[in-house]
Write a protein that binds this DNA or RNA. Structure first.
Lengths: 183, 183
DNA sequence: TAGGGATGTCAACAAGTGTTGACGACTCCT
DNA sequence: AGGAGTCGTCAACACTTGTTGACATCCCTA
């Protein structure tokens, strides 16, 4: 007996998936409600509007487990989460792609920037704690976002078509350069 | 006596600037024509429509000078073009941002992907010519796009607020790791 | 001077957008 | 049984979107 999914949850799920792939303004309310099999008016009722639904999906992002690891296992964990193939259920690249696909948006850009700044860059720098913590954190994020972008969005051979093992080696090389940076 | 700018050129200029910052579907025809000080109907007349104007700006991108350099100067040149501050006239990060801002678009995504694949990744791999050319090319692009993304779009401290000299050192470290990658 | 092609202006169109309010069906508590 | 609260459905709204066609204006040529 599968437990019934509330329509609020249906909307969150469909919204997350569509916002992730196509970006905020390329997704209409009717696209979401159509995918969720729900009436279009319910977005405004439950979330106060399209914007509210987007912010809900943003607030709903799973925590980045790299931030929960100790300093030693940080690199391995960061690499691992990006070397995995895409899994729609418990995907860790997903949150990054959602952020990636919506920075450009004139409406949501500020919220995305704030989220990345406060939720990713700042805690990462604090965890590193070294002298060049801020630089290294920014560089690591650049590497991770860049790899995700090249793989998922640009789909360029040499990164998009690699096995998890091969990817691990490639990402490790870049991430290590970021984390060991000396001016 | 400044030579008069044709309205076709005005449209190309305004279109490029807006598409670059906000992405294809976040820019309306009236936005562009408003910025250019031109009637909205002229986009359809000159370019056959909004889509035609976008493709024109894409075809109008300046060539990436890294592809014209020899193998030795490649790293230095790639780093240099990304360490410069933003210059609206002869900016080399600009083309990358235009691509970056529009991969997600459901209409233009395919064209962008094809452009990056054929215009950047493939010639770059050919120029490298080594055994892991394809991997290294993809990794270099990941690094460069990632840095541009973190700087311009996410505006994260540690990369966004650095002088050209500091940036050069940081990007070089990452690009070297990409180009010297051994499996 | 007449004609024609390019160039710009204006109003309007059909389609799609997010959102709202009225209405009905349902469940739960007293 | 009655009433209240929740949930979903439907039609309609005001607005923006890209595009089109008719008209006016200019400039060059025959």
């Amino acid at each position: 007996m599968t437990k019934p999914i509330s329509t609020k949850e249906k909307l969150l799920q469909a919204g997350r998936e569509l916002f992730w792939t196509r970006g905020y303004s390329n997704v209409s309310v009717r696209d979401i409600t159509g995918a969720a099999g729900v009436d279009a008016a319910l977005v405004s009722r439950y979330f106060g509007g399209k914007q509210g639904l987007f912010e809900a999906t943003l607030a709903d992002l799973p925590p980045w487990d790299v931030l929960a690891s100790d300093r030693e296992g940080l690199l391995a964990k960061a690499v691992e989460s990006f070397a995995q193939p895409y899994d729609p259920q418990t995907d860790l690249v997903n949150p990054f792609m959602l952020l990636l696909a919506n920075v450009i948006d004139p409406v949501m850009g500020d919220k995305i920037r704030a989220f990345v700044q406060q939720g990713l860059a700042a805690p990462l720098a604090e965890k590193l704690g070294s002298a060049q913590a801020q630089e290294r954190a920014a560089m690591l994020l650049a590497v991770l976002f860049g790899v995700a972008l090249i793989r998922k969005n640009f789909q360029i051979q040499g990164l998009a078509d690699k096995s998890p093992e091969a990817l691990r080696a490639q990402i490790t090389a870049l991430a290590r350069a970021a984390l060991e940076f000396e001016p």
